[in-house]
């Protein structure tokens, strides 16, 4: 007699709710990583900021990331309301701004090597913080690109809701992280 081993699948809550909850828990854990890195700035160099820090570039990168958050928000809103074409346009706009942001950080690094290389205290903080953040931006761009290709031929929401929602939430998280990195690296005296 073979033993019957039932596999219980819990359908008392949707996988969408579990996915959302899991994503939020992951974002909280990732936020703690950024908090640790941000606090290291004060241990390494206090609140002083070198005069060669490019304030215009810092402000420009901040505005760019904020605007990309709006386009990501619009992509999610359009998708949820069935405007797939609008969602795809906004996803592409967000990806484009993300790529420009990465290029901006690349330029920042090029300039930073001249004035405060990684061997200096501020250089250590700047390259670590922006390096970790830009890695998140790159993964965000890749994720948004993946979602774009996933929905490029669809005409209805289908089972893509969490794909869009999750990628957009990740992008907003990247923006929230920069909201704290910007004043920490550029504006303190």
């Amino acid at each position: 007699m073979t033993e019957h081993v039932p596999q219980h699948v819990n359908h008392r809550f949707s996988s969408l709710d579990i996915n959302r909850l899991g994503l939020w828990l992951f974002l909280v854990s990732d936020a703690s990583f950024f908090i640790a890195l941000l606090s290291s700035r004060f241990f390494v160099v206090g609140t002083s900021t070198p005069e060669h820090v490019d304030q215009v570039l810092g402000l420009g990168l901040t505005i760019l990331l904020l605007v990309s958050s709006l386009s990501a928000y619009k992509a999610e809103a359009a998708f949820e309301h069935g405007d797939i074409a609008g969602a795809k346009r906004m996803l592409l706009a967000t990806i484009g701004m993300g790529i420009v942001f990465v290029a901006g950080v690349g330029f920042e690094w090029h300039e930073a090597f001249k004035h405060f290389p990684p061997s200096t205290g501020f250089g250590t903080v700047l390259f670590t913080l922006t390096g970790v953040h830009v890695t998140h931006v790159v993964t965000g761009v890749l994720t948004l690109g993946f979602v774009f290709f996933r929905i490029r031929n669809t005409t209805e929401i289908g089972d893509n809701q969490f794909a869009v929602e999750g990628a957009v939430k990740w992008w907003h998280f990247v923006d929230v992280a920069w909201v704290f990195i910007y004043p920490t690296l550029y504006l303190l005296k």
Partner: peptide, 11 residues
């Protein structure tokens, strides 16, 4: 929830 109908049993 203790509703047994909510769980699906699969072989």
């Amino acid at each position: 929830s203790n509703d047994p109908e909510a769980d699906r049993e699969e072989d």
